[in-house]
C-alpha cells in the first residue's frame, strides 16, 4: 500500500519534472523571482538591524535563523503541495475534480501529486543559505543530534503549512472558491517570521493554538536559541504538525462527503 503510493508519487513527480524541463525558461524565472522576493525580506531585516542592535532582545542572526526556518518549511509546502491553492478554481468549478473520484487511488493523493511547483526551489535554496549563515552565530554547538532535530523541525514546519492550507482550501467544497480565505490566512504566516514575543498576547495565542503558524518558524527556531525560554514548547512542533494534519485530513473528508452529495 505505502510502497504503491511511493512508487506512484515518484512516477507523477517524474512526469512533472519533465514538463518543468520543457518550460526551462519558466522554471528559471520562477525560481529567480521567488529568490528575489526572499532577498527583499531579508534586506528589510538587515536595514532595520543597521539601526538597532536587537529587536526586543533578539539579535540579527536569531531573526535571520527564524526567517530561514520559515522559508525552508514553506518551501516544502510550495514545492510539493502547491496544488492546494487550485482546488476551487481549477478542479471543482471546471468539473475536473470528478476525474479524481473515478480513479482507484486516494483523491487527495492524486490531487497533490498532480503538480510540482518549481518556484519553491528558490525558496528552499534561500532558506538553506540563510539557516547556514545564521547557525554559527547562535551560540550553540552543532552536532548530529542538533542537525537531526533541525531537519525534523523543518519538515514539521512544512506540514503545518500544508495542514493549514488544506483545511482552508477544503472550504471550496461548500463555497464558490475559498481562495481569498486561504490567502488571508496564509498571509498570517508572515507574522511568524518574527519573534512572537514582539506581539500582543492575543495575537501570540492565536498564532500558537488556533492557527499554529508560530510552530512553522519561531518556536522551532527558538529551540536552538539559548535562553529564548521556548525550548520546551518548541519540542511540541512535530506533535502540532501531526495533530494539524489529522484535523485537516478529517475536514477534507468531510468536504469530500459534502461534494459527493451536492455535486458542486
Amino acid at each position: 500500500m505505502l510502497s504503491r503510493y511511493t512508487k506512484l508519487y515518484y512516477l507523477f513527480c517524474k512526469q512533472n519534472l519533465k514538463v518543468m524541463l520543457e518550460y526551462r525558461m519558466d522554471f528559471l524565472l520562477g525560481v529567480l523571482s521567488v529568490m528575489l522576493q526572499q532577498f527583499a525580506g531579508i534586506f528589510f531585516v538587515k536595514i532595520v538591524f543597521d539601526h538597532i542592535h536587537a529587536l526586543n532582545g533578539w539579535t540579527f542572526y536569531e531573526i535571520l535563523f527564524i526567517y530561514g526556518i520559515a522559508a525552508t518549511g514553506r518551501s516544502i509546502h510550495h514545492i510539493f503541495f502547491d496544488n492546494l491553492w487550485t482546488l476551487g478554481w481549477q478542479y471543482i468549478r471546471p468539473g475536473k475534480f470528478d476525474r479524481l473520484l473515478i480513479r482507484p487511488i486516494n483523491p487527495l493523493f492524486h490531487f497533490i501529486a498532480d503538480r510540482l511547483q518549481q518556484d519553491g526551489f528558490g525558496q528552499l535554496f534561500i532558506g538553506i543559505i540563510v539557516i547556514g549563515t545564521a547557525m554559527p552565530h547562535l551560540g550553540i554547538s552543532w552536532g548530529i543530534l542538533e542537525f537531526f532535530i533541525l531537519v525534523v523541525m523543518i519538515i514539521a514546519s512544512g506540514f503545518i503549512f500544508v495542514a493549514i492550507n488544506l483545511f482552508f482550501a477544503t472550504l471550496s467544497f461548500w463555497m464558490v472558491d475559498s481562495l481569498p480565505i486561504v490567502w488571508t490566512i496564509f498571509n498570517l504566516s508572515d507574522f511568524a517570521r518574527y519573534p512572537l514575543t514582539i506581539y500582543h498576547k492575543g495575537i501570540r495565542h492565536f498564532l500558537t493554538w488556533i492557527v499554529p503558524y508560530g510552530f512553522t518558524a519561531f518556536y522551532p527556531a527558538a529551540y536552538f536559541i539559548k535562553g529564548s525560554g521556548f525550548e520546551r514548547l518548541a519540542l511540541l512542533t512535530p506533535v502540532v504538525a501531526i495533530f494539524s494534519c489529522i484535523i485537516a485530513y478529517w475536514f477534507w473528508n468531510r468536504g469530500l462527503k459534502a461534494f459527493t452529495s451536492t455535486g458542486s
Binding site: 512526469q15 468539473g95 480513479r103
Partner: peptide
C-alpha cells in the same frame, strides 16, 4: 471506465503515451 463529454481524463501537459503509462500504474 468513463468519458465525460469535453472534459479530459488525461493529463493535460504530458504526452499521451506518458499519460497512458501513468494510468497503467494507477490501475495496476
Amino acid at each position: 471506465g468513463a468519458v465525460f463529454g469535453q472534459r479530459t481524463q488525461l493529463f493535460w501537459d504530458i504526452p499521451v503515451r506518458e499519460s497512458y503509462e501513468l494510468l497503467k500504474h494507477i490501475y495496476e
